[in-house]
C-alpha cells in the first residue's frame, strides 16, 4: 500500500527504537484511518491519497521536537518486522517441515526395513534380492524427495534466521506458547524413545526365536524406529521454531547492538539446516550398502542421534564459529 511505503520512506533515516517504532505505527494507523474515511465519503483513491500525504506534515519538525537525530548510515530498514500473522505462518511451516522430514526418514527406514524383510523371506521367494530392491526404491525416492523438498523450503524461512524486529508484546506471547509447547515436546520425545525401545522386540524375537528370522526382525525394527523418528523430528522442529523466533526477534529498543552481536552467525544455521539431514542419510545408506550385513541392525541409530543432537551440533558449531 502506498501510504505504508510513504511512511517507511519518511522514517527511512530515523533510528529504530521502541519509541520511533511506535510513532511510525501510530502515524501509519492514523493515515490509513483518514484514507478510509475519505474514501467512505466518496473521494477517489488519488484524492484521498493526496489529502493524506499533504496532511502528513514535515518529519524534520517532529524529529527536532523529539530530539531524535537521523541516522546517516542506514542499517535499520533492511530488517523486516515480523507481526503475528507472519510469526504464525513461520511456526506452521516449521511444523509441516518437521513432519515431512520425519516422514522422509520414516519412508527411507521403511524401504530398507521392507527390503531386509524380503531378503529374510529368501527361502520362500524367487529372487528375493531383486524384489527387495524393487520394494526399497519407491520408499527411497519418496524419502529423499521429501528431504530435498524440505531442504529447499528452508530457504523460504531464511528471513527468520537473520535478525528481525519483534515487538515486546508478541515476544511475550511467543515465550508463553513455547512454554506451553514443552508438554507436547516431552510427549513427542517420550513416544520417540518408547518406539525405539519397542523396536528391539522384533529384533530379539528374530534373534532368539524361530517365529521370525533375523532379517525380518531387523526390518520391523527399522519401521518402528522410523515412526519414532517422526516424533523426534516433528516435536524438535516445532519447538525449534519458537527458539528461532525468540533468538532472532529483537526488541526494537536495542536492535542495533543485537544485530551487530549476531551478524556473523547468520549463515551458519542455514548451512547446518540444509546439509545436516542429507549428510546423515548419505552416511546411513553408505554404511549399509558398503559394509552391508549386520550394519543395518545398528546404523539406524544415526537418525535417532541426528534428531537428538541437532540442537547440540548447532550450538557446537556456533561456539567454534564465534571463537
Amino acid at each position: 500500500m502506498i501510504i505504508r511505503e510513504y511512511v517507511e520512506q519518511m522514517f527511512k533515516s530515523v533510528p529504530l527504537t521502541e519509541e520511533t517504532y511506535q510513532l511510525k505505527q501510530d502515524m501509519l494507523a492514523n493515515m490509513e484511518d483518514k484514507y478510509e474515511h475519505l474514501i467512505a465519503e466518496g473521494a477517489t483513491e488519488n484524492e484521498a491519497l493526496g489529502v493524506v500525504i499533504t496532511e502528513f506534515g514535515n518529519i524534520d519538525e517532529l524529529l527536532t521536537e523529539m530530539g531524535i537525530r537521523k541516522d546517516t548510515e542506514k542499517t535499520v530498514d533492511h530488517y523486516p518486522t515480523m507481526e503475528s500473522d507472519a510469526v504464525d505462518g513461520y511456526i506452521k511451516s516449521r511444523q509441516t517441515m518437521g513432519l515431512r522430514i520425519g516422514l522422509g526418514v520414516w519412508s527411507i527406514l521403511t524401504g530398507v526395513g521392507g527390503m531386509l524383510t524380503l531378503f529374510g523371506l529368501a527361502p520362500t521367494l524367487n529372487m528375493p534380492g531383486v524384489i527387495g530392491v524393487i520394494f526399497l526404491l519407491p520408499f527411497l525416492i519418496i524419502g529423499i524427495g521429501l528431504l530435498i523438498m524440505e531442504g529447499l523450503r528452508s530457504r523460504d524461512l531464511q528471513a527468520y534466521q537473520s535478525p528481525f524486529v519483534l515487538l515486546p508484546d508478541l515476544r511475550d506471547e511467543i515465550a508463553d506458547r513455547k512454554k506451553a509447547y514443552e508438554k507436547s515436546l516431552a510427549f513427542s520425545i517420550m513416544m520417540g524413545v518408547a518406539l525405539c525401545i519397542l523396536s528391539f522386540v522384533p529384533l530379539l524375537i528374530g534373534l532368539w526365536t524361530t517365529t521370525l528370522s533375523v532379517l525380518p526382525g531387523i526390518g520391523l525394527m527399522l519401521v518402528l524406529i522410523g515412526i519414532g523418528v517422526v516424533f523426534f523430528v516433528y516435536g524438535g522442529n516445532s519447538y525449534y521454531a519458537f527458539t528461532v523466533l525468540l533468538e532472532n526477534g529483537k526488541d526494537p529498543a536495542c536492535f542495533e547492538e543485537a544485530v551487530k552481536a549476531d551478524k556473523r552467525m547468520k549463515k551458519l544455521n542455514y548451512i547446518i539446516d540444509e546439509i545436516y539431514w542429507p549428510v546423515i542419510v548419505l552416511v546411513y545408506l553408505g554404511l549399509g550398502f558398503i559394509i552391508g550385513g549386520n550394519v543395518w541392525s545398528w546404523s539406524w541409530i544415526l537418525f535417532v542421534l541426528g534428531g537428538i543432537l541437532e540442537d547440540t551440533v548447532k550450538a557446537l558449531f556456533e561456539s567454534i564459529y564465534k571463537s
Binding site: L23, M31, E55, F56, M66
Partner: peptide, 9 residues
C-alpha cells in the same frame, strides 16, 4: 487541519 507531524510534536 492539524498535520500529523505537528500533532505528534
Amino acid at each position: 487541519v492539524i498535520k500529523e507531524t505537528t500533532m505528534y510534536s
